[in-house]
Amino acid sequence: MRLAGKTAIVTGGASGFGKGIVEAFAAEGARVLVADLNGDGAAEVAASVTGLSAQVDVSSNADWARLTAQAMDMMGGIDILVNNAGITHLPKAMEDVTEEEFDRVLSVNAKSVFLSARHIVPIMKADRRGAILNIASTAGVSPRPRLNWYNASKGWMITATKAMAVELAPDGVRVNCLNPVAGETPLLTSFMGEDTPEIRGRFLASIPIGRFSTPQDMGAAATFLCSDEASMITGVGLEVDGGRCI
């Protein structure tokens, strides 16, 4: 029960890595608000753990204001924030990505971190405590060809994590990020372009451990970094990647 008594918001919590983090947090004693653009999916996941859910577009300032107010009303405080929601564009040459695709990727993967900070950091600073975890990617450490602007958005998130960490440390707020390799999530097919045994084989060949990241892998790592056991850890980008970035 490493998170007993803690309250948490997990964005993109209705599926994939986010769902794994929600389930791990709940198992460790946290009260979790599951936030997702898929409101029905968020409610379904929440029903099996804490019962708290919200439909939210993480690229919307108004939605963040509403989510923050809802979290304070439901839970009385916010100890942990996990910025997990993310999207990608399909693999293609960088010059072929449309402006609309670029704007959407940066809005969901980067602007969402900015917006969440505007609304939730003041609460954590006032409480003199808090843990923020951004879900970045190995793509931000060792970029894959033809995912150029997705790579860049995750690199932005890694740098934002470090900048947030050094600024917020004096206020008792820790900020870290996880860098998973691709996993069995709704985004996997988008990363690969198409899901065939040959393409999966090439993807897996780049991972020394020989498998994808799982929601359970992410839940375990997230639990540690957001618990008091990691009280001396901030500004870290932890690779949960089976050795891909070595």
Rank of each mutant, 00 (worst) to 15 (best):
E99K: 14
E99F: 09
E101Q: 10
E101P: 05
E101T: 01
F102I: 02
D103M: 08
D103V: 03
R104V: 01
R104I: 02
V105Q: 01
V105H: 03
S107N: 14
S107K: 13
S107A: 09
S107R: 14
V108L: 00
N109M: 03
N109C: 04
N109T: 04
N109K: 02
A110H: 06
K111V: 03
K111D: 00
S112D: 05
V113M: 10
V113I: 10
F114G: 01
F114K: 12
F114D: 06
F114L: 10
L115V: 03
L115N: 07
A117L: 10
A117F: 09
R118W: 14
R118I: 07
R118A: 06
H119R: 15
I120L: 12
V121D: 13
I123L: 15
I123D: 11
M124G: 03
M124L: 06
K125H: 09
K125F: 05
A126S: 11
A126N: 12
R128L: 04
R128I: 00
G130L: 06
G130E: 09
A131R: 15
A131H: 11
A131K: 13
I132S: 05
I132F: 07
I132V: 05
L133R: 08
L133S: 03
L133E: 05
L133G: 00
N134C: 02
I135R: 11
I135E: 06
A136P: 01
A136L: 02
A136Y: 04
S137F: 00
S137D: 01
A139F: 03
G140H: 00
V141W: 02
V141C: 00
S142Q: 07
S142N: 04
P143I: 01
R144M: 03
P145E: 08
P145Q: 10
R146E: 04
R146I: 03
L147K: 06
L147F: 04
N148T: 06
W149M: 10
Y150D: 05
Y150F: 06
N151A: 05
N151T: 04
N151P: 12
N151Y: 10
A152Y: 12
A152H: 12
A152V: 13
S153H: 10
S153T: 07
S153N: 10
K154N: 06
K154D: 04
G155D: 09
W156L: 12
M157N: 10
M157Y: 07
T159V: 08
T159D: 13
K162L: 08
K162Y: 11
K162W: 13
A163P: 06
A163G: 11
A163K: 13
V166A: 12
E167Q: 14
E167R: 14
L168D: 11
A169I: 09
A169P: 07
A169V: 09
A169E: 13
P170C: 09
D171V: 03
D171F: 15
D171P: 08
G172L: 12
G172K: 15
V173Q: 13
V173P: 11
